[in-house]
Design a protein around this nucleic acid. Sequence first.
DNA 1: TAGATTGTTAATCGATTAACAATC
DNA 2: TAGATTGTTAATCGATTAACAATC
Lengths: 208, 208
Amino acid sequence: MDTLPGKTVERLSQYRRRLLNLVEENVEYIFSHELAAILHITAVQVRRDLMLLGFSSVYRKGYPVKKLIEVIGQRLDSESGQNVAIIGMGNLGTALASYLTGLRPKLRIVALFDIDENKKGLKIGGVKCYHVSEMGKVIKSKKISIGVVTVPQTSAKKVASQLIKSGIKGILNFTHIPLEVPSDVYLEEYDMITSLEKVAYFVKKKKK
Amino acid sequence: MDTLPGKTVERLSQYRRRLLNLVEENVEYIFSHELAAILHITAVQVRRDLMLLGFSSVYRKGYPVKKLIEVIGQRLDSESGQNVAIIGMGNLGTALASYLTGLRPKLRIVALFDIDENKKGLKIGGVKCYHVSEMGKVIKSKKISIGVVTVPQTSAKKVASQLIKSGIKGILNFTHIPLEVPSDVYLEEYDMITSLEKVAYFVKKKKK
DNA sequence: TAGATTGTTAATCGATTAACAATC
DNA sequence: TAGATTGTTAATCGATTAACAATC
């Protein structure tokens, strides 16, 4: 199966989330222009993405919602699911832990880590917190392939190298320093201050 | 002055952050390939971005760090600075408030809001928390132009419309529902689960 | 049927990279 | 000088949009 473009992957993730809401509301079919309107994109964009999935609509009814959710899942998710750890139980890590836990059945948050001995054994969103010194052991025993890094800047590099040494295959980095990873590890970085500065820049520009 | 492409704005924000670190280390000049290496991009990319700024290097010494920081500031920042509010003091909002406060002199976090009466008057990172009912009043009196939305999903739309009604010009949305804004308001959305699903997808793909 | 919607190709737009003369 | 580095144009790559025949 071909690898989808990153942008399409992002949108498929968004489509699925909206579609899951629609199922709750007992919507059975949706037209491309309806889904597009929800996400503020064009109907062509939606149709093209679904074309890449090889998914077709039902004539004059639109796309069957449940079926589409299923097909997106087949493409995005790993069949057996993937295990995720969050490292750094400050405010950001805690927010992520409680939000992500149980949200996607195929993306299981199975371990949290913090340097603070007092947080050891704590449960956030039902998931146990371990001391960072146990990282290597827990990552291997729980078959964790993805690490979310929410530690303070100062320890980011150390944590990343520990993750890599433990055999993690993907890192989502929320700290504000760029990380170095070997080519077999997928790295995604997100930086809040950059987003905010971008908003500030375009607000300034709009004023004129 | 021409409007810079969004991607360039993002990178300029990143350059500045790295350059500020370099100043601490008393680095006076930097070559394009050095800055590129720090950010895992190409030297051409860096040079092209700086070309858009109209900024030139010093022959055989590279770009003067302090001067470059200044020029990036002239382009990205608003001269008089911009005021920012964060709405929703859960874990995520608290993380943002404490991280962002005082980080960029021209982006001042001047007010926090929460629906919980008990948080009223609280100070996070030295910034006062108000009750959401005071939003309109405080936004106007403090001349706030940017709102960061970190409330629970259920109240996201309501908060956004209050912000817009109060005259805000930019919204950074961390909730998981797409917002609707009029065309004179700049909207940037960030969704953590989408980032995580993207990492998961490419980890799955790499395995093969 | 008439016409709303679709799936797909081709065209366009935007962003990145290659190429290379200019610098001193 | 020789050669590292730069600034900029042109070429390439990738993603979005326009166009439109096909569907029933």
